[in-house]
Amino acid sequence: MERPGWLVNWPVYRQLTGADRLGRGFAVRSPHTEHAAPRTEAAARVVSSVCPYCAVGCGQKVYVGMVGGREAVTQIEGDPDSPVSRGRLCPKGAASKQLVTHSGRQDKVLYRRPFAASWESLDLATAMDMIADRVLATRAATWEESVDGKRVARTLGFASLGGATLDNEENYLINKLWTALGAIQIENQARI
């Protein structure tokens, strides 16, 4: 005779009819447990990356999946293939998913007018345009063709200080553009 589903799924019944008489294991498993699987298996893609914190350069695997209908990083963990790190991460590296997904991240341009007491919003394209204007105006106002009779062809009117998480390619373009504009106060955390 066919037993009804509720009965055969009732752990008490499974306790009485199976090997797990004390109800501490097989008989009492829940649907959540039966369906457990690493969420990384559901990732849409996995890319190889490098930890953005210290200079050891630990390998990372970045898993991207759908969260609330949008693509998001669902896990970052060590890359076991890396001869540098062998898949291991420190607390900062282990927190790097949160670095990417935390709620304190800014994703909008903010603008503070001179003498203003608060931020206002600004369109990214407008901001870029305004910044380009500032650079050119400052450069024009502060251009030095020579110092003590020696040609220098530069501006000391604006400066740049980069962080140590800038990529090589980013530093290359920063140095290239600023130098071509005649700026020389191009600095980096590397001196700090």
Binding site: R134, T142, A159, S160, G163, L166
Partner: peptide, 10 residues
């Protein structure tokens, strides 16, 4: 002497 400043991740 310096009027403008870029802080790129610093």
């Amino acid at each position: 002497k310096v009027k403008g400043y870029f802080l790129l991740g610093e």
